[in-house]
Nucleic acid binder design. Structure first.
Ligand SMILES: [Mn+2]
Ligand SMILES: [Mn+2]
Ligand SMILES: [Mn+2]
Ligand SMILES: [Mn+2]
Lengths: 219, 219
DNA sequence: AATATTATTTAGACAAATCTAAATAATAAA
DNA sequence: TTTATTATTTAGATTTGTCTAAATAATATT
């Protein structure tokens, strides 16, 4: 089963949107892929034909077991390349997503596995996301909550769930990265903004929009 | 000027075939790209439209100055990735061409330059071919001749002008690689085969077909 | 329950890249 | 210099992935 770049991008996006087991809607997928709902419907028919998804008119899309397997391989490649770009080529974390978006489509198991080895078989990418192993198995994630949900006070940043340059650049500016320890000083109900303090730093306030994309674990 | 993968492959092949300044024929290009002459004619019209080639019906194709510039960037990426695969991921020289054929299409100057730096700004790829610098400038090649043309007797291998897995695997089997020193023992006129001897090795005979793809320099 | 709104699908078109078969031009042979 | 051969181009079709506009289905509102 040989997938085109377009098909791979669809499969990966379906995987990303398919939290839990709710089906992915045509509109949501179109938005994620920056395309039109009509195009999604067209592609859905093709992917169903190839048995990569389950799809019935008006019922949304879920990955088949083959589709999930394919998705995990693409995600593996994507995240390994991100590691390479950050660890070896010294890119910063907000620059690598777009490049990995292209590199992920070079399909060679040997290349992927050699790259993983070269990087020391990393299990997390630069954004804290887990990297599937060669068999597509994901290490079970350490428990983490988003910063706007937690009730602990002293926390460490474990991941960021939005790879956009805008958010990552914002976090850079505030000195927040993976492993950063912080303390919650206040939670303002009015707009759900949160006042936090990093070690040796003045307190700062961050919006709910930012907080919900920062994953943390009590320390 | 944003090129598609197909356009890049055409540009690179034209560059490769355009030895000296003879125009590249439709048939030769079709053969090189493993496609049909009719497809070449179609693409030639598009590339002319984009001012990447000079082309008149029945007159063959030559790169324009923009086309040459583009070609050198693609070649640069191709050869840098080959270096990466061999030097860092420990691939052998016959495995890397096809992978680089895909990696070369990731267009990012920053990535390319970082990769070059990471590799120590190499000037030769694993097959002995020169790597254009960031400005597209090629180091002027050290003088070399093909093994079937030279009249010197003690030689060192400097490059291989056919990247096919078949030839490179053959050379591996015979212990011939870049930098290998050899001595010509005899030249048989009948089929232009050549008897050579590597250090500490029994003499072997190689065909003209092989010899003409091995570039050498007197030592 | 009827109506309005939103989500999704269909119909029909388009651009890119390719192909086969047929036509034409260029070149080589007689 | 005709004639045959080879190279190249054109005509018309196909596949993939996309789009807009219109039709239909599902859901929400009155
Ligand atoms: Mn991608
Ligand atoms: Mn990532
Ligand atoms: Mn290529
Ligand atoms: Mn090479």
């Amino acid at each position: 089963m040989n997938l085109s770049v377009a098909e791979e991008n669809y499969i990966k996006s379906i995987y990303k949107l398919q939290e839990g087991d709710e089906a992915v809607s045509t509109n949501a997928l179109a938005y994620e892929l920056d395309t039109k709902p009509a195009s999604v419907t067209d592609m859905a028919k093709k992917l169903k034909e190839k048995k990569l998804i389950e799809y019935e008119k008006y019922q949304g899309i879920v990955l088949s077991s083959d589709g999930r397997k394919a998705a995990l391989q693409i995600v593996r490649r994507h995240r390994l390349w991100e590691c390479f770009l950050v660890d070896k080529l010294l890119f910063s974390w907000e620059e690598v997503h777009e490049l990995a978006e292209e590199l992920e489509h070079v399909r060679s198991e040997k290349l992927t596995n050699r790259l993983s080895e070269f990087l020391g078989n990393p299990v997390l990418d630069p954004h804290g996301d887990p990297i599937p192993d060669a068999n597509g198995k994901l290490a079970k994630p350490r428990p983490q909550t988003s910063l706007d949900q937690t009730n602990a006070k002293r926390l460490v940043v474990t991941a960021v769930t939005d790879q956009s340059t805008a958010l990552l650049a914002f976090l850079n500016a505030k000195g927040i990265k993976l492993g950063t320890q912080l303390e919650i000083l206040a939670h303002y109900e009015y707009d759900n903004s949160i006042e936090i303090k990093l070690k040796q730093q003045p307190a700062i306030t961050i919006s709910e929009q930012v907080a919900k994309h920062i994953m943390v674990r009590p320390v």
